[in-house]
């Protein structure tokens, strides 16, 4: 970007009237990074379905938007540290239809995810509500934070 090159130009000068501009440049860069960082925070793996992963002290929560996917067409597997989501989205063929727009896709999907720590694979629960899959993944006992009593 032009303004950056221009602002970096007088860097060889010590204590110059450009100090003020240098501050401005840094401030601009900070803003730019914050903006880019926000975009990066939502960077996708490019694998369907996109997921949001969160955690609290007890569980991981994995959410995915799967509108129109029936729960019987969904398969969730959990092992020591990973979760696999697979299934198929079916869109029925409409008889005698003349399409004006077709933006919704049908097809199969499969995605594996490694979690940051061990999980209790036997206690994973999942539900689909209004087209959002919600998986609750309890953390393994060994990785849960433990409160230590002080005598």
């Amino acid at each position: 970007m032009i303004y950056r090159r221009w602002l970096q130009w007088p860097q060889w000068q010590l204590h110059s009237p450009y100090d003020e501009m240098d501050r401005l440049r840094r401030r601009l860069e900070e803003l730019y990074e914050n903006y880019a960082g926000d975009q990066a925070g939502r960077s996708s793996s490019g694998v369907f379905p996109l997921v949001n992963l969160t955690e609290d002290a007890e569980n991981f929560y994995l959410r995915a938007e799967l509108p129109g996917v029936a729960s019987e067409d969904l398969d969730i597997q959990a092992t020591g540290k990973s979760i696999t989501l697979s299934g198929e989205r079916k869109i029925p063929v409409e008889e005698g239809a003349r399409y004006h727009r077709k933006e919704r896709d049908a097809g199969k999907f499969s995605r594996g995810l490694n979690l940051p720590s061990d999980i209790d694979a036997d206690k994973v629960t999942a539900k689909v509500m209004n087209g959002i899959l919600n998986i609750t993944i309890p953390k393994a006992e060994s990785v849960k934070p433990r409160k230590i009593a002080i005598n």
């Binding site: 409409e94 008889e95 003349r98 399409y99 004006h100 727009r101 933006e103 919704r104 209004n130 087209g131």
Partner: peptide, 22 residues
């Protein structure tokens, strides 16, 4: 939302993906 819009002789049908909407 992503939509499909199609037309038959008698009607126009719109399908929209709106996950999370009650």
């Amino acid at each position: 939302p992503d939509v499909d819009i199609f037309e038959t002789e008698k009607e126009i049908v719109l399908l929209a993906d709106m996950p999370g909407v009650r």
